[in-house]
Amino acid sequence: MTDFALPEKGDEPRRLLAEVVERCYAELRSYARLKVGDDGIAEELVQEACLRLVTSGGEVPRNPRAFLYRVLSNLVTDHHRRRARFNKSFIHSDALDAADDRPDAERQIIARQRLAILVRAVAELPPRCRECFVLRRFDGLSHTEIADRMNITRSAVEKHLAAATVHCARRLKAHD
Rank of each mutant, 00 (worst) to 15 (best):
A147C: 03
R83S: 13
T77E: 15
L53F: 06
C50K: 03
P7N: 05
P127N: 08
H160K: 00
I109H: 12
I117N: 01
R128S: 15
V54E: 05
D104T: 08
I41H: 02
M1W: 04
L16A: 12
F138L: 14
A121F: 04
I152C: 00
G40C: 03
R102G: 08
P64T: 02
L115E: 15
R170K: 07
V21T: 01
G140P: 04
F138R: 12
A169D: 04
L6G: 12
V157A: 01
D39L: 04
E158W: 03
D3H: 12
T55N: 07
M150Y: 02
T55S: 14
P64N: 08
R81S: 05
L51Y: 12
Y25H: 07
V134C: 06
T2W: 06
H92D: 15
C24A: 14
F67P: 01
V166Q: 02
R136M: 10
H175E: 15
L51C: 13
T153C: 00
L125K: 02
D78V: 09
H160G: 00
V20S: 08
H92R: 15
A99C: 07
D148Q: 14
L45M: 01
I109P: 01
R70H: 09
E8G: 14
A174P: 03
D101T: 13
L96N: 10
V46R: 00
D176F: 04
A66W: 03
E27T: 08
S93T: 15
A162G: 06
D139C: 12
G57V: 07
A147F: 03
R29W: 11
R137A: 08
S155G: 11
C168R: 09
E22D: 10
A18I: 03
V166H: 05
N63G: 02
A5H: 07
T153G: 04
T55H: 01
D39M: 04
R14Q: 11
E44L: 10
G40H: 05
T77H: 15
S30I: 08
R149L: 10
R23T: 06
H175N: 13
F86L: 12
D148M: 07
N87L: 15
S155D: 10
P61Q: 03
A169C: 03
S155F: 07
E12C: 05
L34Q: 09
A99N: 10
A116S: 11
R130C: 09
L125N: 02
A111F: 01
L135Q: 10
A5K: 11
F67L: 05
P13M: 06
Y25A: 00
A174G: 10
V21L: 04
I91H: 14
I41K: 02
E48A: 06
V21E: 01
A84N: 09
R114S: 11
V76H: 09
L45E: 01
P127V: 11
E124R: 11
A84F: 07
E131M: 13
I117M: 06
I110F: 11
P13L: 04
